[in-house]
C-alpha cells in the first residue's frame, strides 16, 4: 500500500523523463548500431579509423586532463585555507567562489576574449612592458580553451574540496603534531588522504565538465575542435545526424567510463572512507 503511493508519486516525473529523455537517448544509441536494417558496428569502425576524429577525441581528453590537474593544483591550497577560516570570512569567500559558478559560461568566456584577444588586455600589457614586440596569439588556441575551462570549473573543485576539508577536525592535525609529525607531514599523511573523496568528486565534475563543455571551447578554442563542438557541427552545420548520433553515443560512453573509473580509483586509494 505504502509502496504503491511511492511509485504513484514518482510516476509523472518518471513518464516525463522516459518519454522525453530515456527513449530519445535509447533510439539515438540504437540508430547508430543499425545500418540498412541490420546490426552493424561499421559506423564506429569508420570513426575510429578516421585520423581527424581521433585527433579531436585525443585533443579533448588532453584539454580535460590538463584542466583537471590545474584545477586540483590551484584549488588545494585555496580550499585548505578557506576551510580553516572562521564563519564570516569563510562565508564571503565561498560566496565569491560560487558567484562565478552561477554566472553564465558565455559571460565568463567572453571576459577571456577581452583579456586574451590580439588587442586584448594581456597583449597590451605585455607590449607596454616591452616583454613582447608583437601581439601574441593566445585566443583561439588550446591554451585559451584551457584557461577558460580552468576558470569555469575552478569553483567546483574548490567547493568540493572545502566540503571534505571542513569535516577534517583540527584535532586530527593536532594529534599528528603531538605525536611528532611536522605540519607538512601532518598534511601529507592525514589531511591529504582524507581529502580523496572530495578530490574524486571534484575531479569527476571538472573532467566530465571539460570533456562535454560546449560554450567555452566554441568561444575560445577557435578552429581547435573538441568533441562537443564536433557533435554540434555534424548535427547542425553538416546535417549528418548519423555521425552526430555516433559522437553522442561515444560521449555518453566516455562519460560513464570516466565516472566508473574514478570511483574505482577512489575505492582503491581510500579503502576505509
Amino acid at each position: 500500500m505504502k509502496k504503491s503511493i511511492a511509485y504513484l508519486l514518482m510516476l509523472p516525473g518518471l513518464l516525463f523523463l522516459v518519454f522525453f529523455m530515456v527513449v530519445p537517448l535509447l533510439f539515438t544509441v540504437s540508430s547508430t548500431l543499425v545500418q540498412q536494417g541490420h546490426f552493424s558496428f561499421d559506423g564506429y569502425l569508420a570513426f575510429f579509423k578516421d585520423q581527424y576524429f581521433i585527433e579531436i577525441l585525443f585533443n579533448t581528453l588532453k584539454v580535460s586532463l590538463i584542466t583537471t590537474l590545474m584545477c586540483i593544483f590551484i584549488s588545494f591550497p585555496a580550499a585548505y585555507y578557506i576551510s580553516k577560516l572562521r564563519t564570516r570570512k569563510k562565508t564571503i569567500l565561498i560566496g565569491l567562489a560560487v558567484f562565478p559558478l552561477l554566472t553564465s559560461a558565455i559571460v565568463r568566456s567572453f571576459s577571456w576574449m577581452i583579456i586574451l584577444g590580439k588587442k586584448g588586455i594581456l597583449n597590451t600589457l605585455l607590449l607596454h612592458l616591452h616583454i613582447i614586440n608583437e601581439p601574441i596569439n593566445i585566443l583561439y588556441t588550446p591554451t585559451a580553451m584551457i584557461i577558460g575551462l580552468v576558470h569555469l570549473f575552478l569553483p567546483l573543485m574548490i567547493i568540493s574540496l572545502i566540503g571534505v576539508m571542513e569535516n577534517i577536525s583540527d584535532d586530527l592535525v593536532q594529534a599528528a603534531e603531538s605525536l611528532g609529525a611536522s605540519r607538512f607531514t601532518a598534511f601529507r599523511k592525514i589531511v591529504f588522504p582524507l581529502c580523496i573523496p572530495g578530490l574524486v568528486v571534484g575531479s569527476i565534475l571538472v573532467f566530465v565538465g571539460s570533456l562535454t563543455a560546449y560554450t567555452t571551447p566554441a568561444l575560445l578554442g577557435g578552429k581547435q575542435q573538441v568533441i562537443s563542438v564536433f557533435l554540434y557541427q555534424n548535427a547542425m552545420t553538416l546535417n549528418d545526424w548519423y555521425a552526430a548520433s555516433i559522437i553522442a553515443t561515444i560521449m555518453i560512453a566516455i562519460t560513464f567510463i570516466v565516472i566508473g573509473f574514478m570511483n574505482l580509483a577512489a575505492r582503491k586509494l581510500n579503502p576505509k572512507g
Partner: peptide
C-alpha cells in the same frame, strides 16, 4: 611536535583512514 607529550582527545581524534 618537539614536545614529546602524549595527548588524548575528547573525541579520540583517531585517524579514520
Amino acid at each position: 611536535n618537539k614536545r614529546h607529550f602524549g595527548f588524548v582527545f575528547q573525541n579520540y581524534a583517531l585517524f579514520p583512514h
